[in-house]
């Protein structure tokens, strides 16, 4: 069995974002990057499946992006993936989700993966398109937003999370793509021995030009802060002072302090 996991590296969401010189995405200066939260669940699920099947499946982790994304690939390798593929692209932010999906598909096409795990969405772009579009291009089954995963006898049974906590149970025939939702599992922390072992694993670099054959379908116009709607009070500064002010406001504006 061959399994592909797609991971994106995204900035820490507690950062301050400013437009870059193109004006259509954020500047990377001062940002710290990490593996997209949703993708950690994807990696963990793939590794758990490999473990359950006695180590037989081969796990490839792929990321499209600049040199920094090698860190994300290494994290996946130290969590238990076998080999990495780095599609080297200096400006993935200027490609639309359709192009990213088609780049991944161009790589996957010849490889014959039985299962592909992606995140449900990326925290920065959040298009929730790459996984499903990839499945469409590869012409295989797909289910999104999974919170439960089981494999047996060439089929996969997942629970999709719907609104209000209801779940939909869905069976998929392989080959299939699943997009992983928060809470699917408990992603492991790489151990030191596994981090050392991961250093010996192969990471193949492929220039994006070899895989990119599609024009964008969406044009990026601009990147900006949302218009401030909330006219709420902001309390900053000395802690004791903040406490007193908040209690004053609660006494004045609510009936909960008796």
């Amino acid at each position: 069995m061959k399994i592909l996991v797609c991971v994106k590296q995204v900035p820490d969401m507690e950062s301050r974002f400013r437009p870059d010189t193109t004006g259509v995405w954020f500047a990377e200066t001062d940002l710290a990057f990490r593996v997209n939260e949703y993708d950690e669940y994807a990696i963990e699920q793939a590794v758990q499946l490999k473990e359950r099947l006695g180590g037989e499946p081969e796990l490839t982790v792929l990321s499209v992006g600049p040199d920094r994304v090698v860190e994300a690939i290494k994290k996946a390798l130290s969590m238990g993936c076998d080999r990495g593929v780095h599609v080297l692209d200096g400006s993935p932010q200027l490609k639309d989700p359709w192009q990213i999906a088609s780049i991944i598909a161009a790589y996957a096409q010849g490889e014959g993966f039985d299962l592909v795990f992606t995140g449900m969405q990326s925290l920065d772009r959040g298009s929730a398109q790459v996984g499903v579009s990839l499945a469409e291009i590869l012409n295989c089954a797909c289910a999104t937003t999974i919170v439960d995963f089981e494999y047996g006898d060439g089929t996969v049974t997942v629970k999709r999370e719907l609104e209000g906590g209801v779940k939909g149970i869905v069976r998929l025939r392989l080959p299939a793509v699943v997009t992983c939702q928060l809470g699917l599992n408990q992603p492991r922390y790489p151990t030191l021995p596994n981090i050392m072992k991961a250093k010996k694993k192969e990471i193949r670099t492929i220039p994006v030009a070899e895989l990119l054959h599609e024009e964008p379908r969406t044009l990026l116009e601009s990147f900006y802060s949302p218009a401030k709607k909330g006219g709420g009070i902001v309390l900053e500064g000395d802690l004791a002072d903040q406490v007193d002010k908040l209690i004053g406001i609660l006494k004045e504006k609510t009936t909960v302090l008796r």
Binding site: P11, T218, L219, S225, P226
Partner: peptide, 16 residues
């Protein structure tokens, strides 16, 4: 559309 976990906005235009 929102991006960066709702902290920022992104204006885009579909082609076609």
């Amino acid at each position: 559309r929102p991006c960066c976990s709702q902290k920022m906005r992104h204006k885009v235009n579909p082609a076609g």
